[in-house]
Amino acid sequence: MRGKRSLLRMAAWLVFSGSLVVLAYSTYQAVRAPMEAHQALRQWDALKRETEGGSAARAADENPLSSAIAGKLQQTGGGGSPAAPARTAADGELLGEIAFPSLDQRYAILEGTGNEPLKLGAGHYTGSPLPGEDGNSVLAGHRDTVFRNLGKLKAGDRIEVETTSGRYTYEVTGRRIVDENDSDAVQASTEPLLTLITCYPFTYVGPAPERLLLTAKLIEEAPAT
């Protein structure tokens, strides 16, 4: 009997210890993600300071961009034809920042939509035009970090993007919720547009089955100083 009680106590202790480990890891991840995103933004601020007054220098789990959407984008890019973007960037390269004035939030933009870029900020889909260029520039972000408040933006709200090429102001024109397998969710364009993509619903537990797409048109631009 004493041996059975000892085994029960040991099993309870193992369960309790395992729960503590899971809780500690979840807390670590929740704290680390904002810190990493803030670090990328500090790097962008440092890059801006280094290039002020001179020529601009180039900085060397669940994916919002589903395989269906990404597959179609590989065929069309974001422009009106399969032509390559005017400029290209290396995967993980720090491109600039995106700001949402109505939300009082700003985040770094990095090249690529893989795990590493999306840990640090909004990821630019490689193959779509860069912000400010003609065509549909596509940015993806996680629903629990950089794009967690995307659903609060409404038509007419401003989105400000700054890169080493200039400053661009977009105006939100609409939003759509589509199935993650909707390959035609992102439409090609010959006009300078911005499409932001994140997983949806925001509170869904596990891999979300839908995507929220926010579209915006370019209304103002200024070259880099």
Rank of each mutant, 00 (worst) to 15 (best):
Y28M: 06
T173H: 04
I109R: 05
R106V: 08
G114L: 00
P117M: 04
L196P: 00
A40S: 15
A84S: 12
G156W: 10
S81Q: 06
R9Y: 11
G127I: 01
P201Y: 01
A12I: 12
G71T: 09
D134Y: 03
R175K: 14
R158D: 15
V22F: 12
R58A: 15
F147D: 01
G54M: 09
H142Y: 07
L110M: 12
L118K: 03
T163S: 08
F147I: 02
T126C: 03
L95A: 08
L193Q: 14
K152T: 08
F100N: 07
T173Y: 01
L65G: 13
N181G: 11
R49T: 07
T88R: 09
V205P: 00
R158E: 15
Q187S: 11
A108N: 04
A30L: 13
E36W: 06
A60V: 15
E50Q: 14
D144V: 04
T169Q: 14
G77Q: 00
I69Q: 01
L20G: 13
T198I: 12
A84Y: 02
G132A: 09
H38L: 11
T203P: 00
G77L: 02
E93Q: 14
A37T: 10
R158Y: 05
A90F: 03
T145P: 00
T88A: 10
R106W: 02
L20Y: 02
L14N: 02
W44C: 07
G166I: 11
K119Y: 02
A40G: 09
E52Q: 14
V138T: 06
T88Q: 09
V205D: 13
A24Y: 06
K152Q: 15
D184V: 07
V31R: 10
Y168L: 12
P117Q: 05
A84G: 00
F147P: 00
T76H: 10
E50R: 15
L150K: 08
N181V: 03
A11W: 04
P82C: 09
L65S: 10
G206H: 12
I177E: 11
G141L: 07
T88I: 06
S66D: 00
G18R: 07
D61K: 08
E116V: 15
S165N: 10
K154E: 15
P85W: 01
T215V: 13
S128W: 05
K217C: 01
R58C: 07
E116G: 05
L7H: 12
V186S: 06
L23Y: 10
A224I: 02
